[in-house]
Amino acid sequence: MLWKTLTYFGDSMLLIPTAVIIALILPWKSDNRRTVLYWIVAFGLAGLFVSLSKILFLGFGIGSAHYNFTGFSGHSAMSATLWPVMLWLISGRWSSLWRGFALGVGYLIPLMVGFSRLVIHAHSKSEVVTGLLLGFTLSTAFLISQRRTALKGFSWPQVSVVLLVPLLLLGQGRVATTQQFLERFSANLAGLEKPFSRADLFRQ
């Protein structure tokens, strides 16, 4: 149960609404007009790279049997893109100590998500590691681009409102069907009856 809960912190059903919340809050809390654009680009690129890697394998069998790689772990990549930014945003006016702690939590959550994907046998090590590297690269690049950005503080009621939707989604536990959609899309795109599987990779 613990690992299923942790892995949900990387599920699109939770992350996409949370990413939208971040995009809506940034113009209000940031003094940099480009911050929201940079965020949309960072999160969008994470989704694009993950989707392309999965389509290449599911539709065309492009992967690596040697590294047991069938595409980036979406849970790992998307969580590593989102949570450091989410904690940076919320902790914008905290003291340096507490802000550093919050950012540490933002980087720790994706690591736990990635580990949970291994425990429940949803991905290989190469897929989790590359997913985390992709996500952390994008979130860190975003944070570096915002190093001179001043953020307005959050009151605790505002923090509660910001976290309300993610907490409600977490409580519901409904998972996204993005993998099933990509499987159908990739098979149709390549003209296949069914998408490639990991077993097909090792048979090649």
Results as ranks from 00 to 15, higher is better:
114 G>L: 12
115 F>D: 02
115 F>E: 00
115 F>H: 04
115 F>A: 06
116 S>W: 01
116 S>L: 00
116 S>G: 02
117 R>N: 09
118 L>H: 04
118 L>W: 11
118 L>K: 12
118 L>Q: 06
119 V>G: 05
120 I>P: 09
120 I>C: 07
120 I>S: 06
121 H>L: 10
121 H>S: 11
123 H>Y: 10
123 H>C: 07
123 H>G: 08
124 S>T: 15
124 S>V: 10
124 S>R: 08
126 S>A: 15
126 S>C: 11
126 S>R: 04
129 V>K: 04
130 T>Y: 01
131 G>N: 09
131 G>V: 04
132 L>V: 02
134 L>V: 05
138 L>V: 03
139 S>T: 05
139 S>G: 02
139 S>W: 13
140 T>N: 00
140 T>I: 04
141 A>E: 03
141 A>W: 04
141 A>S: 15
142 F>L: 13
143 L>E: 09
143 L>P: 11
144 I>S: 00
145 S>E: 03
145 S>L: 15
146 Q>S: 11
146 Q>K: 10
147 R>T: 14
148 R>K: 15
149 T>I: 01
150 A>V: 14
150 A>I: 13
151 L>H: 03
152 K>L: 13
152 K>I: 05
153 G>Q: 06
153 G>W: 13
153 G>C: 07
155 S>F: 08
156 W>E: 10
156 W>M: 15
156 W>S: 13
156 W>K: 06
156 W>P: 03
158 Q>W: 09
158 Q>V: 07
161 V>R: 02
161 V>I: 15
161 V>A: 15
162 V>A: 14
163 L>N: 03
163 L>F: 04
164 L>F: 14
165 V>H: 06
165 V>Y: 06
165 V>S: 09
166 P>D: 04
166 P>M: 00
166 P>S: 00
167 L>F: 12
167 L>Q: 05
168 L>T: 07
170 L>E: 11
170 L>T: 14
171 G>N: 03
171 G>Q: 01
171 G>P: 07
172 Q>D: 06
173 G>T: 05
174 R>P: 00
174 R>Q: 08
175 V>Q: 09
175 V>A: 05
176 A>W: 12
177 T>K: 09
177 T>V: 04
177 T>R: 09
177 T>F: 08
178 T>L: 10
178 T>V: 10
179 Q>A: 14
179 Q>W: 09
179 Q>I: 10
180 Q>K: 08
180 Q>R: 08
180 Q>F: 09
180 Q>E: 15
181 F>L: 13
182 L>S: 00
182 L>I: 04
183 E>S: 05
183 E>L: 02
183 E>H: 07
183 E>V: 01
185 F>W: 09
185 F>H: 02
186 S>T: 06
187 A>N: 03
188 N>Q: 14
188 N>Y: 08
188 N>T: 10
188 N>W: 13
188 N>V: 08
189 L>Y: 05
189 L>D: 00
190 A>Y: 08
191 G>P: 00
192 L>W: 07
193 E>W: 07
193 E>L: 11
195 P>N: 09
195 P>R: 11
196 F>T: 01
197 S>F: 01
